[in-house]
C-alpha cells in the first residue's frame, strides 16, 4: 500500500518469472523504499497452511502404507521360512553355513522389495497419466483445467529406495531365525 490515498497509485503488482523469489524480493523492496511489501506466500498464508497439512496427511498415509507393506513382506518371508524348515535343516546338515541361509532369505526379501517397487513405479506412472487425461472443464485463474501432477523421477527413486529398504529390514528377522535353526531338531522331528 502506498500511503493509503485514493486516486493515486496505491498498489504495485510485480510478476516474477521465478515465483520462489517473491519473499526475498518483498523484503528487499521493504528495506529499500520503506513501504509495506507482501509476497504471494504471505498473502495466501492460510491457503498454503492447508497445503502443508495436506502434505503432512499424504506423507503419514504413505508411511502407513509402507509400514503395512513391510509387515506383509515380513509375513511372506516368515511363512516361507516356516514352509522351508526341512529344506533349511538339510542344507545346514549338508554344510551350508548360517550366513548362506541368512543371505538366501534376505535376498528373497530384497527381490520381493525390488519387484514391488518396479510394479509400484509402473502402476504409479500409469495412474499419473490417467489422471492427466481428466479435464475439469472450468476456467481457473491460472488457466489450468486439469490436475497439477508431479512427474519427478526423484519421487519414484525415493519411494523405491524406501520400499526396498523396508523389504530388506522386514526380511532380516525371519532370515536370522532361519539361519539359527537347529538341523538336529528338524531331522529328529521328521524321523
Amino acid at each position: 500500500m502506498l500511503q493509503d490515498r485514493p486516486r493515486v497509485v496505491n498498489q504495485i503488482l510485480i510478476r516474477l518469472d521465478d515465483v520462489t523469489r517473491a519473499e526475498a524480493l518483498a523484503r528487499q523492496v521493504e528495506a529499500r523504499f520503506g513501504d509495506r511489501a507482501e509476497s504471494w506466500e504471505e498473502q495466501n498464508r492460510n491457503i498454503l497452511t492447508v497445503f502443508v497439512i495436506q502434505n503432512a496427511i499424504m506423507y503419514s498415509v504413505t508411511g502407513a502404507i509402507l509400514l503395512v507393506a513391510a509387515f506383509g513382506i515380513y509375513n511372506i518371508i516368515s511363512t516361507v521360512v516356516y514352509e522351508k524348515t526341512r529344506d533349511i535343516a538339510i542344507l545346514k546338515s549338508l554344510g551350508f553355513p548360517e550366513g548362506d541361509i541368512q543371505r538366501l532369505f534376505l535376498l528373497q526379501g530384497l527381490v520381493v522389495g525390488v519387484l514391488g517397487a518396479l510394479i509400484g513405479c509402473a502402476l504409479g506412472a500409469l495412474m499419473i497419466e490417467a489422471l492427466a487425461q481428466i479435464r475439469f472443464g472450468i476456467d481457473t485463474p491460472a488457466g489450468q483445467d486439469r490436475f497439477i501432477l508431479a512427474r519427478d523421477g526423484r519421487i519414484y527413486l525415493l519411494a523405491s529406495l524406501f520400499a526396498v529398504t523396508a523389504a530388506g529390514l522386514a526380511a532380516l528377522i525371519p532370515a536370522r531365525r532361519a539361519s539359527r535353526l537347529d538341523p538336529v531338531q528338524v531331522v529328529r522331528g521328521a524321523a
Binding site: S93, L94, G95, P97, E98, A190, A191
Partner: peptide, 13 residues
Amino acid sequence: ASLRLSRLGFVFQ
C-alpha cells in the same frame, strides 16, 4: 559346517 560339507556325507531316513 565347512567340515560337514567337505569331509562328511549324510543320508537320513
